[in-house]
Amino acid sequence: MLLDGINHIAWISKDVARLAQFYAEVFDADVGPTRPHGQGGNETMTNIRIGPHTGLNIVVIEGNTEPERQTPMWGRGRIDHFGLQAASPEAFATIRQRLMDNAASDGTINDFGAVHSIFFRDPDGLEGEVVIAKPSS
Rank of each mutant, 00 (worst) to 15 (best):
G83Q: 04
E90R: 15
N7G: 03
I58R: 07
M1W: 13
T54W: 01
A10K: 07
I9S: 03
E68T: 11
G107P: 07
T44C: 07
A103P: 06
P33F: 05
V60Q: 02
D111Q: 07
I132R: 00
A10H: 13
V31A: 13
S88N: 11
D28G: 01
G125S: 05
R18M: 13
H116C: 04
W74I: 03
N110C: 05
D4T: 14
A29P: 01
H8C: 06
P67V: 10
G5P: 09
Q97V: 09
W11E: 00
E68F: 04
R96N: 06
D111I: 06
F92W: 12
N64F: 09
W11A: 06
A87S: 12
R18T: 15
R98L: 07
A133N: 12
F92I: 06
S136C: 08
A133R: 15
T71Y: 12
Y23I: 00
Q97D: 13
E129W: 06
D15W: 05
T108R: 12
T71C: 03
L19A: 05
R78Q: 11
N47G: 00
D80Y: 01
I48H: 04
I12F: 07
A10S: 13
F112G: 09
P52F: 13
D106R: 01
R98H: 14
S137M: 10
V26Y: 03
A93K: 11
H81S: 06
E127V: 14
S136Q: 15
R121P: 08
D15Q: 04
G107A: 12
G51A: 10
F82Y: 03
L56T: 01
S88F: 14
I95V: 09
I109P: 01
Y23C: 02
L19Q: 11
A133V: 01
F82L: 04
V130L: 13
I109W: 12
I118T: 10
D111L: 02
I95C: 02
G40V: 08
N42P: 08
T71E: 12
H53M: 15
K134M: 01
D101V: 10
K14T: 03
M100C: 02
I50W: 13
G51D: 10
P67D: 00
I109L: 12
T108E: 14
I50R: 11
R76I: 07
N102Y: 08
G75W: 06
T71F: 14
R121Y: 11
G83K: 04
A114V: 15
S88K: 08
F27S: 00
P123L: 12
P67M: 05
I9A: 11
G113H: 09
A86R: 11
